[in-house]
Design a protein around this nucleic acid. Sequence first.
DNA 1: ACAAGTATGCACCTTTTGGTAAGTGCCCAA
DNA 2: TTGGGCACTTACCAAAAGGTGCATACTTGT
Lengths: 155, 155
Amino acid sequence: MHLLVSAQKVSSDRSDQNLAPAPAEADVQRCTPTLPGFTCGLDATLRVVSGKWKPLIMYFLAQDGPTRYGELRRAVRDVSDKVLIQQLKELEADGLVKRTDYKEVPPRVDYSLTPLGHSLAQALVPLCTWGTEHMAEVSRVFAERDGWTTKRTGQ
Amino acid sequence: MHLLVSAQKVSSDRSDQNLAPAPAEADVQRCTPTLPGFTCGLDATLRVVSGKWKPLIMYFLAQDGPTRYGELRRAVRDVSDKVLIQQLKELEADGLVKRTDYKEVPPRVDYSLTPLGHSLAQALVPLCTWGTEHMAEVSRVFAERDGWTTKRTGQ
DNA sequence: ACAAGTATGCACCTTTTGGTAAGTGCCCAA
DNA sequence: TTGGGCACTTACCAAAAGGTGCATACTTGT
């Protein structure tokens, strides 16, 4: 759903094909066109973290380490079992999360970040910081857009 | 659409490479409860960049500076007018992009990043880097998941 | 005259995503 | 025995998000 960046690379009519790393004050460096299916690294990254609850899940796991399903379920409030499981499965399939099943009698399973998951969590830090710093602006904009003018602590 | 979360962890010196899921060290700080509507900074950020083509748009604008609608359209191939316009409008509403209309006779308009947009673009760099570095893994996973031929990655 | 380009708008649809409610098998406490 | 918790699974739905295609008003090129 969310953030994808489709395929293909830049193009043609423009004469710029430099790969030069961005200058110090420049913003973003040119992504390497890499593997088929992705336009760039950002594309790959976003495909993997896109999911309503994925970042939150990563967040909890990064914070609390191995966490049992039930705990996660309670931590990420408002998420349904179906979706939680679904997102966990995708994260697992993507190698970001590890599921451990202690084949015990009353089921016991826990989830934790893999090294890859940890590295991604770190890459997310700047975004988190950005959001925190600019939340006021973002919030204002969303207020108008969605109409919840004042407060609305719902969920 | 919505992606929530916040992960603010800083483990400067601690590198990752293998390492077991570190028992929840205290290097991740709780989200600042923030404003109504957001769980945390990452949540705010992701809401703003979530859109199939938004990151790519930001990417082009960060790279090429002010870009006319038509150029953008050609650069971001496979996007439809409706969606491109839509995403641009949202980015504009969110204060990340500035639209300039040179009220000329054959319409002429261009888009560029605002300072806020630039700052976000910078926060996206680590994600881009992460994706580039781990694209092989991600690609492999997606190959199986989606079934498209991943010829060369033979494992 | 006519096609093409410019930057959109709009109606209509399909796909994707998330949500609800119920059920499963097993065990334990009341 | 009933009820609850555990970790899911499934069928069915609703809401988003994205896509297609046509339309606009005006101009320039052929």
